[in-house]
Structure formats: structure tokens, C-alpha cells
Design a protein around this nucleic acid. Structure first.
Lengths: 105, 105
DNA sequence: CTGCATCCCCGTCGATACTG
DNA sequence: CAGTATCGACGGGGATGCAG
């Protein structure tokens, strides 16, 4: 993840991947397993989900905890940084609704 | 501009175009001419700048006022909606700096 | 259950050149 | 000054299938 010319772009780069923001918002509600996230986000493929999760982990936004059991079990949760940015995502959510309202007219 | 599955994505769609957010932040400082924006954003081509300006105008975020003089003169400014979302962009800017600080370590 | 590998399409963006 | 036209490179993301 590279630095943008302006910090706003840096932020966008962290968040623009398909569904990344939504994943964080769901994890804000509490720790979730891979399968649960997959069900909460019906419009994303496994490929993208695991890719986004990995990137979010590398960015330090989420924690990944794998249990070496059979069948495997993996839990995802927010890091402190993840908690710090979630209010911003919430603000963006509100802003998004503003746009959606406008579009309906 | 289509609606996202989650409003956060709607918001991102408005803002993720290269430099769109930065344009809004500059216009927040006051009305600017095309040339001025072009100089404030040295890393964006004319093609992208005019494309982004047009999209922001269509989204209702900025106003475009052209004076039919020679040489031509066009001024861009924020709409009320543009003013409403700029605090969110500022929050994203702060968040971006958080990320950048982390990356330096 | 939790992913990764492969193939491929398509939109985004840069470079360059041109116009009213 | 304020853009538009065209071409081409690049990467995100979908579909499908397979593995530990």
C-alpha cells in the first residue's frame, strides 16, 4: 500500500478495495469468522474476500487468528487502529446516504 | 454514478477518482479557476482534471461558471452539498495521516 | 471450513496531440 | 485559457476450480 500525494488518497487507498470498508464496519460489531463475513457480504467472491482480509491485516486494521483445528477456524477482529478509523467510515456512510437520497430525486 | 451495495461504497465511488477528494478540499478554500487547480495538482493530467471536474459537477458537489470571454475563464466552487461532505473528507485526511505515520515505522 | 490459482474482461488512467 | 480525442498500458475484480 503506497502513500498518496495527499493523505486523503492514502486513506482512500486503504478503503477503496471492493467491500473493504464494509468488512471493517461489520467487524466493528464484534469478532467474526470467515464464513460469517462471507454470508454478510453475499456479493463478494471468496477470492476478493480473502484478498481484502489479507490487505486489511497487512495494513494493521484487523487481526487474524487461526485455530489449527480440523475443520479450520479463523477469527477476524479489529485492531486498535481499526477502531480508530471506524468513526470515519461511519461518517462516510452518512455521506453516502446523502448522495443516495439525491440520486433518487 | 451508481449506487453501492452499502452507502459507504456510494461515498467512495464519488471520491475515489484520482484526486477528486483533493479537488474538493482545495475548492473548500474558495473559488478557483481551472488553471489554478491545475497548478495546485501537479500530478494530474488535463484529461483527468477535466474529467473529474465534470463528474463532480454532475454529482452536484461543485459549481462550474464559465465566462464567454477571450481568453476563456471558468470558475469552480463548492455547492452546498460539497460543503456538507468536506468535513468528512477532512476526517479522512486525518485518518490518512494516521496510516502514513504507521507506514514510516 | 478457509482459502489460493488461473483465466479473462473491462474500466481507469497516462501520454500525446489538437481545437475554439 | 480551458479543455477534447485517441490510443494503449495496467490492474481490479468476476468465474471457476482445486487444496489443506
Amino acid at each position: 500500500m503506497e502513500k498518496g500525494y495527499c493523505p486523503v488518497d492514502t486513506f482512500i487507498n486503504f478503503v477503496k478495495g471492493k467491500r473493504k470498508a464494509t468488512i471493517v464496519l461489520h467487524l466493528k460489531q464484534g469478532t467474526k469468522r470467515y464464513k460469517e463475513l462471507s454470508q454478510l457480504l453475499p456479493d463478494i467472491s471468496d477470492r476478493m474476500l480473502s484478498k481484502n482480509l489479507k490487505e486489511l491485516e497487512e495494513a494493521g486494521i484487523i487481526n487474524r487468528k487461526a485455530y489449527p483445528t480440523i475443520p479450520p477456524k479463523v477469527e477476524y477482529s479489529l485492531t486498535e487502529l481499526g477502531g480508530q478509523i471506524s468513526p470515519i467510515l461511519k461518517a462516510m456512510l452518512k455521506g453516502g446516504r446523502l448522495f443516495e437520497k439525491r440520486m433518487e430525486e
